[in-house]
Design a binder for these strands. Structure first.
Length: 419
DNA sequence: TCTGGGGTCCTAGGACCC
DNA sequence: TCTGGGGTCCTAGGACCC
């Protein structure tokens, strides 16, 4: 049996842990640049604030209903996530951290009643010890566990946030209740197509013919159907090295000069290089993209990207910055107002398996330089040492007007309590 | 004025090989 | 008049997830 543990309204809940005065009040968390809503407390959801709502369009509503607004504080959320995951890991070794706020746990050989009881205990313990409320869905497959979790959350009062789909009766009841677009793996496009042929519920979906699914949709939908029938098709994915790494940002204002965009792109490349070194990979190619603000009809639009094949695999910030700059030169055009750019590195080789080429290779001196750079930044704080071509005057500033303290990771920002 | 960021997997079609 | 068959690899784009 699988248990899917999901933190409720995770980012909003993280903010509340250190602001208990906000319990019962509407809370939203914004994306980078305070752009749009990425997390909402139940009270905020009830006010009709949709996911991904642009913050500026809802400013009035926030004011009117005294919604507490936070800028994204990923340092805090990452640390809180670690605390939750550490507790979950005490229950089983067979464990997949699916996202920052979700994990699949594999429990073998439990009786159903025992597992339900164990998960109820886990639910209470995590909520009490970390302050983050969680919901748990239990079932034979990951997809059914997702559905069970949805039910646990939707009917929290009745389920006490833990729900098991075990018997055939429960499975069919759940699937007949679950709308097809609520199935894990069926998104907007697919559900539209399915609804057009009168497939409304997850149960309807399981009645479709395998051959038809494979031919008209894809092999994934065949697996999905199996999963909903209770036949395991998706296994736990143990922690693996990433296959692509990206750093992309929307700018706080429009950039028109090559040098401004260049500084950003070099910084993104250096950030990708750092992430590569953390997982001990080198990349063989990188993609650079730039674009204007597509929301603005009155702007001349331009977006372009380029894939740069590297002459050798590397994770040196210096080399990746050079390749990124060369790539940018090929796609940058004067006369546009740039609003967003990004660097994505792909095609990895483990760093200790990089082949030596005859003529051109990564500069071996960079290995020690990068080790030193990472070590200094780890002990003295991010970006203490950076490339000279990276924002030496600190021009770049992300908008974060409502940033909460880093309560758990910075001693100067630790919570103080008045007795 | 203002609209996020980071991933995975699958498929179709083209290029290329013998 | 008539123009094969089978395979691999790569890439772009789409769809999905949080």
């Amino acid at each position: 049996m699988y248990a899917l543990v999901d933190c409720n309204n995770f980012y909003a809940s993280c903010e509340r842990v250190f602001r208990p005065d906000l319990n019962g009040k509407p809370v939203v968390v914004l994306s980078n640049n305070d752009g749009c809503v990425v997390a909402r407390s139940n009270e905020a959801k009830e006010l009709g604030i949709p996911m991904a709502a642009p913050a500026f369009k809802y400013a009035e509503l926030f004011e009117q209903h005294k919604v507490h607004v936070f800028s994204a504080n990923f340092t805090l959320y990452g640390d809180m996530s670690q605390r939750v995951m550490n507790l979950l890991a005490e229950y089983t070794d067979d464990f997949e951290m699916y996202s920052i706020d979700e994990a699949f746990l594999n429990f073998e050989g439990y009786k159903q009643a025992d597992l339900q009881a164990l998960c109820e205990e886990m639910q209470q313990k995590v909520t009490k010890w970390t302050g983050i409320p969680i919901s748990i869905g239990i079932a034979r497959t990951k997809t059914l566990a997702k559905a069970a979790n949805y039910i646990a959350k939707k009917f929290a009062a009745r389920t006490k946030s833990v729900y098991t789909i075990d018997t055939e009766e429960q499975r069919i009841k759940a699937l007949k209740w679950l709308k097809v677009d609520g199935v894990w793996g069926i998104g907007r496009r697919l559900s539209k197509r399915l609804q057009a042929i009168n497939i409304q519920t997850a149960y309807d979906f399981t009645q479709l013919d395998d051959e038809w699914l494979q031919k008209k949709l894809s092999i994934v939908s065949v697996h999905l159907k199996q999963e909903l029938l209770g036949v395991e098709s998706f296994r736990l994915i143990r922690e693996t090295a990433k296959k692509s790494i990206a750093t992309t940002r929307t700018f706080e204002k429009n950039y028109t000069e090559f040098d401004q965009v260049k500084e950003r792109v070099i910084t993104f490349a250096a950030s990708c290089a750092e992430k590569l070194r953390r997982q001990k990979s080198c990349c063989n190619a990188m993609m650079i993209f730039i674009r204007t603000n597509f929301h603005r009809a009155d702007h001349e639009q331009y977006n372009n990207s380029i894939v740069v094949k590297l002459p050798f695999a590397t994770n040196s910030s210096i080399e990746l910055a050079q390749f990124a700059e060369a790539g940018l030169k090929k796609i940058f055009k004067e006369g546009y107002k740039y609003k967003k750019a990004g660097v994505v590195v792909v095609d990895f080789t483990p760093q200790d398996e990089v082949e030596q080429h005859l003529f051109e290779n990564s500069n071996p001196k960079h290995v020690a330089a990068m080790q030193a750079l990472d070590k200094i930044n780890a002990s003295l704080g991010k970006n203490n040492v950076k490339l000279a071509s990276q924002d030496p005057k600190k021009v770049w500033k992300m908008r974060q007007e409502k940033l909460s303290p880093r309560y758990t990771t910075n001693i100067d920002e630790i919570i103080t309590i008045q007795v």
